[in-house]
């Protein structure tokens, strides 16, 4: 269970989060949508402790972790970063098995598990010994997804999982995310602009705009929200309450 109350963050005069209230239940897949620069990534980084919020509280499984390390939370956590963020000094299998190797799993066993996880995301065993720079963009994304799910996390964050991918590869990644969440029974937060991702992976959707969650509701209600911000965003209209230049 993730609970945010009054979460606020500014960078200088730029107010990015202006008081976010949000609950994400265990096993739920929440997708946060919103334009570029609306603070979606900052929201995730505040939850992870990578950015310290200016105000508000973050509770994970009932514990207030706003100003303390999140070791217990991170030990059962996985994340797919927008650019993959694979460690380019390590071969793919060591990226995927990073947490296993850290936890002193024997290298041979960690490698076997990494190859099994790579197979789950559709990557052949021969990619295990390649370095990330030797993979295509889509393969890097799948390897990064393999790393995110390798240790069977209970909580997974996906940051723009389909950014920069062609529609077919984006479809593959969306399907893999849905399968990973369903298969693992994990709690998931995904941030994206991609409406296909929203419709594929979301149980619930929230629209972030101007530092606030303007609308939040079940994914099935997205098309009948009645909210002008949501209407403009999901139909990609230039005219509406969301200014193109922010």
């Amino acid at each position: 269970m993730i609970e945010l109350r009054g979460l606020a963050k500014s960078f200088g005069a730029n107010r990015v989060l202006a008081g976010i209230d949000l609950d994400v239940a265990t096993g739920e897949s929440l997708v946060v949508i919103g334009g570029s620069g609306t603070g979606k990534s900052v929201l995730l980084k505040c939850v992870l402790g990578l950015i310290e919020p200016d105000a508000g509280t973050i509770r994970l499984d009932g514990q207030d972790v706003t100003h303390i390390p999140r070791d217990a939370f991170l030990s059962r956590f996985g994340m797919l970063f927008q650019g993959g963020a694979l460690f380019d000094s390590l071969p793919v299998w060591q990226n995927v098995a990073f947490r296993h190797l850290k936890d002193r799993v024997p290298r041979a066993e960690a490698r076997t598990r990494a190859i099994e996880t790579l197979a789950r995301v559709g990557l052949p065993a021969r990619t295990a010994d390649l370095y990330p720079a030797e993979l295509s963009g889509g393969m890097q994304k799948r390897a990064a997804l393999a790393r995110a799910i390798a240790a069977d996390p209970q909580v997974i964050f996906f940051d723009e999982p389909t950014a920069g991918l062609d529609p077919i590869m984006a479809g593959v990644i969306n399907k893999l995310i849905r399968e990973a969440v369903t298969h693992l029974g994990a709690t998931a937060i995904t941030i994206t602009h991609d409406m296909t991702t929203v419709r594929t992976v979301a149980d619930r959707v929230g629209l972030l705009h101007d530092g606030l969650l303007r609308w939040i509701g079940p994914a099935d209600d997205l098309d009948r929200s009645g909210d002008p911000y949501v209407e403009q965003f999901i139909h990609g209209r230039a005219e509406g309450p969301i200014a193109p230049l922010r």
Binding site: L50, L74, Q82, G83, A85, L86, F87, F98, K102
Partner: peptide, 10 residues
């Protein structure tokens, strides 16, 4: 974001 990734991997 590789350093952020390290943090998320404990």
């Amino acid at each position: 974001e590789q350093i952020d990734a390290l943090v998320t991997l404990s």
